[in-house]
Nucleic acid binder design. Structure first.
Length: 475
RNA sequence: GGCGGGGUGGCCAAGUGGUAAGGCAGGGGACUGCAAAUCCCCGAUCACGGGUUCGAUUCCCGUCCCCGCCUCCA
């Protein structure tokens, strides 16, 4: 394969070559488990799931690490409000996150490290930074000395001297410089804390990712991913923490996804315009929701609205309809192994070009159009149709994660349960049609429709299926 | 103010120095008893103004507008 990916650090599309041939280590910033995930979180999940699936589909072995921030200010705050403790809050929302990711069809990470499970690694990193004079201790707090690290600002293209210092700098009185950030926070009364060389306390947020990514992937791992809003200061700080301590490259390739907007503004909890990810999956389904996520290139903003979701639902229905029809027409013929090839090539080429999902989806549309044209020909070759159906399902499911095969299987199961009744009704309808008694024929079809059975007449007689769910969101 | 992204047919969205993929919606037609599915046909000169060029939507300059980051955030 020759995948070209935009690298935030180099600000250019560059060929992705793993450090170790055939193996890829990727780390993606995960959730702070303090509330239910929203649609914005789903985008990052789907973008990096797509990258992972594409790499795997290309024959690479991927080790995917996604952390869970299970201790931080917001978690503590929430626990306090609910009269429980931080660990309980983190556990609860951690499970919600996992369940929601499953529903979205996101492959689980190989390792899901917890911040609270890596305090020693984090403390080692802080110790190294203090030893290198890149960090200093103030009454149990430890701060990173930003101006001591010349490369600071390289990722986000910012010059340290031009960083605007906000009005309300946290701990301004204790820092040497307002730009410095906390590596370790001294315990405050009533807060969870852990012992450390600097007294009881807890880790600063940026610290965990530097420590856990390297702990599980090794320094200089291949791909570091996250939302564009994490570039500064989070990822900038991650780099500073690792490179100032060790002098070695932290991550080789930085990939960032664009934000989800509600039209007027970014979807974000602090703005208060969030839609729950679990609700969205339940409302439109995994396939349509993922197609919506994939309807724009991964770095551009994406608008969440009903019309676009409905469009995505229509696209998903089109893929389903073709796969269903092509499988039926192909019978048990074996795929010819050739007909789908040019569509697969176009699809793969699109993803190799900086994960161009809209073009990859367009390749699937070309495949369906090709198949639709064959389908209406009486002499269509079964092997060709079988190949197109198999190719579509493979690409849509293995790479895009849409779940076409699952939906078709669900339909088949539903259909099997009512098959005797439906076949019986259709036999009567066929008789009625033969007798030109269309009133009766239509009444039978209407009754089946009311029961959720879709009947379609064709040259070879009627075919039917039971849709697993409404095929498109209402407009 | 600094940094970054963007303005392409009714809507969404790719893309390229040589006159613009794909989808949705819409219109017309084929097929059908009707419907569904499918197929065929129909629409943009690419925010605006300059410049470079044989030629620019694609390169450069300027203008307008939108969005993100600069504090927690996928």
């Amino acid at each position: 394969m020759s995948l070209f990916l935009f690298d935030t650090l180099r600000r250019a599309e560059v060929e992705f070559v793993p450090a170790v041939e055939g193996r890829v280590g990727m780390y993606v910033c995960g959730p702070t488990v303090q509330a239910e995930p929203h649609v914005g979180h789903g985008r990052a999940a789907v973008v990096f799931d797509l990258l992972r699936r594409h790499l795997q589909h290309s024959g690479l072995s991927v080790r995917y690490v996604q952390n869970v921030t299970d201790i931080d200010d917001k978690i503590i705050l929430r626990a306090r409000r609910e009269g429980t403790d931080a660990a309980a809050v983190a556990t609860r929302y951690g499970r919600v996150f996992e369940r929601t990711m499953d529903a979205l069809g996101v492959l689980p990470p190989d390792v899901r490290p917890l911040a609270t499970g890596h305090l020693l690694e984090m403390q080692e990193l802080v110790t190294a930074l203090i030893a290198a004079d890149r960090a200093y201790v103030v009454d149990g707090d430890v701060f990173f000395r930003v101006r001591s690290f010349p490369a600071y600002g390289r990722l986000s293209n910012r010059r340290v001297d031009e960083l605007v210092e906000g009005e309300d700098v946290v701990d301004a009185d204790r820092k040497e410089d307002p730009l410095d950030f906390a590596l370790w926070k001294a315990a405050k009364p009533g807060e969870p804390s852990w012992p450390s060389p600097w007294g009881r306390g807890r880790p600063g947020w940026h610290l965990e990712c530097s420590a856990m990514s390297v702990a599980h992937l090794g320094a200089g791992f291949d791909i570091h991913g996250g939302g564009l809003d994490l570039v500064f200061p989070h990822h900038e700080n991650e780099i500073a923490q690792h490179e100032a301590a060790h002098g070695t490259t932290f991550a080789r390739h930085w990939v960032h996804n664009g934000m989800v907007t509600m039209g007027e503004a970014k979807m974000s909890k602090s703005v208060g315009n969030v839609v729950g990810l679990g609700d969205a999956v339940a409302a439109v389904g995994r396939g349509p929701l993922r197609l919506w996520y994939l309807s724009a290139q991964h770095r551009t903003p994406l608008t969440f609205d009903d019309d676009r979701l409905a469009d995505a639902g229509t696209v998903f229905a089109r893929f389903l309809t073709f796969a269903r029809a092509a499988r039926r027409a192909a019978g048990d013929a074996a795929p010819d192994g050739a007909t789908g090839r040019r569509h697969r090539d176009a699809f793969v080429a699109a993803l190799d070009d900086d994960l161009n999902a809209p073009v990859a989806v367009a390749a699937l549309h070309e495949l369906v159009a090709d198949g639709g044209e064959r389908l209406r020909r009486p002499d269509a070759e079964a092997g060709a149709l079988a190949d197109l159906a198999a190719t579509l399902v493979e690409l849509a499911d293995d790479v895009l994660g849409l779940g076409v095969a699952d939906v078709l299987a669900e339909e088949a199961a539903l259909g099997a349960r009512v098959a005797p009744l439906v076949e019986d009704a259709l036999a009567r309808r066929t008789e009625a049609r033969a007798a030109k008694d269309f009133a009766t024929a239509d009444a039978i079809r209407d009754r089946l429709a009311a029961a959720g059975v879709v009947v379609e007449d064709g040259p070879a007689g009627a075919v039917w299926h039971v849709p697993a769910r409404p095929v498109a969101a209402p407009r």
